[in-house]
Simulated assay, not measured.
Amino acid sequence: METVDEKSATMVELSVHGPSGDQLLRTLRAWLGHNDAFRGQTELRRRPIAEGDMGGGLDVLVVALGSGGAATLLVQSVSTWLNQRRSDVTVTIRATDGREVSISVTRASDPLAVMREAERLVPLQPHE
């Protein structure tokens, strides 16, 4: 498969925050690798250490986006991957110009308890 030329591609960085962040990032890379549009277009990197930081930077997943709706496909793929997680996870997608967006999935340990609490706040009324 031909890879996207980095000079003509839009590069974005994805970072993952949650339990076992590094492992989640590797899992996300593998997930994206199953899609032909991203196969060979991802690379795990270490961020440079910023002034005032102690130790190494956080790992990021760099994705080269070609044209033809690759950005939309990336967002859809990340959303699907997030919905399959069983814990609270946030993925931040950052463009080279500094713009970023974060997508979070929060899992309740007891969904029925959440429903009960919501029902206390807004009692369900039968339809007449």
Rank of each mutant, 00 (worst) to 15 (best):
M1V: 05
T3I: 05
D5A: 10
S8V: 02
A9E: 11
T10Q: 15
M11S: 15
V12Y: 06
E13R: 01
E13S: 02
L14A: 08
L14H: 03
S15V: 01
V16G: 01
S20L: 03
S20C: 00
S20E: 11
S20W: 05
G21L: 03
D22V: 00
D22M: 04
L24F: 06
L25H: 03
R26T: 07
R26S: 12
T27I: 06
L28M: 07
L28V: 07
L28S: 01
A30G: 13
N35C: 09
N35K: 03
D36Y: 08
F38A: 02
F38Y: 08
F38R: 02
R39I: 03
G40M: 07
G40W: 05
Q41S: 11
Q41A: 13
T42L: 08
T42H: 05
T42A: 12
L44V: 06
R46L: 04
R46G: 03
R47T: 02
P48T: 12
I49H: 09
I49E: 15
A50N: 09
A50P: 01
E51Q: 09
G52Q: 07
G52P: 01
D53P: 05
D53L: 00
G55C: 00
G56I: 02
G56E: 15
G57W: 03
L58R: 04
L58V: 02
V63K: 00
L65R: 04
G66D: 12
G66H: 05
S67C: 01
S67T: 06
S67Y: 10
S67G: 13
S67I: 02
G68Y: 06
G68N: 12
A70E: 00
A71C: 10
T72Q: 14
L74M: 04
Q76A: 15
Q76C: 12
S77G: 02
S77Q: 03
S79G: 13
S79M: 09
S79A: 13
W81Y: 11
L82S: 03
N83A: 15
Q84P: 01
R85D: 14
R85N: 10
S87L: 02
S87M: 00
D88E: 14
D88M: 11
V89L: 06
V91P: 08
V91L: 01
I93Q: 10
I93K: 00
R94E: 14
R94V: 03
T96S: 15
D97C: 07
D97Q: 10
D97W: 08
R99Q: 14
E100C: 07
V101G: 11
V101K: 00
S102M: 04
I103C: 08
V105T: 08
R107C: 15
A108V: 00
S109H: 11
S109W: 12
D110C: 03
D110K: 04
L112W: 12
A113H: 02
V114A: 13
V114G: 09
M115W: 09
M115S: 15
M115Y: 13
E117N: 06
A118T: 06
A118R: 06
A118N: 10
E119I: 02
E119Q: 13
R120Y: 11
R120W: 07
V122M: 08
P123I: 06
P123H: 07
P126A: 12
P126I: 08
P126G: 11
P126K: 03
H127R: 12
E128Q: 03
E128A: 12
